[in-house]
Write a protein that binds this DNA or RNA. Structure first.
Lengths: 93, 93
DNA sequence: CTGTATCCTAGATGATACTG
DNA sequence: CAGTATCATCTAGGATACAG
């Protein structure tokens, strides 16, 4: 939980399960996240070795994030969490 | 994550996987938790319907906690988290 | 487009003392 | 034994403006 136990990290990792994403695209997928928390979250995920960050030297700037091998090892948990959330929510209504 | 995304809740739930536990025992198993956070966590878990609380009218007081059906549905995720933590930790050393 | 810096608030957490 | 109350601290998180 020290690595992924925040409001946004699980969502970020989940959206990266399908492949690398450009920074802006990824941020748009995480509806509601502030610019600050998005940057802070991906920075920490990178520091913890769960995702990798690639900067393309072009203009305008382009940055892509993707899961590292360690991050990929969380796939089962991430999909379980997603599935549980969906099922559990359905049972509440 | 809104339900279990805190420092202690996953641990509390995990320790209840093997069956109901008396309050003091459970708290001792969660090494490092303060009395306040333990009480607050179990109260919220109870409010969210993940665990149930049973008070035995005896002296000295006896209180037991156990997983509800909804809490039990988290078993897969809890065990996955535990296993991932153990495996991941082993890979770091 | 991507990221940083700053200020601010709410909540999470902890230490301690106290009650039934 | 179980739980509450109080005080204090730290961090997560958000809004906004700015920079390369």
């Amino acid at each position: 939980m020290n690595l992924i136990g925040t409001k946004w990290k699980p969502l970020i990792l989940f959206h990266l399960l399908e492949g690398a994403l450009r920074s802006g695209i990824l941020q748009k997928k995480i509806s509601g996240v502030s610019n600050k928390m998005f940057t802070q979250s991906v920075r920490e995920l990178e520091k913890d070795g769960l995702i990798s960050r690639t900067v393309f030297p072009v203009v305008p700037p382009k940055v892509e994030y993707k899961l590292s091998e360690r991050g990929r090892s969380l796939e089962g948990i991430l999909r379980s969490l997603d599935q549980w959330g969906a099922t559990d929510f359905k049972n509440m209504i």
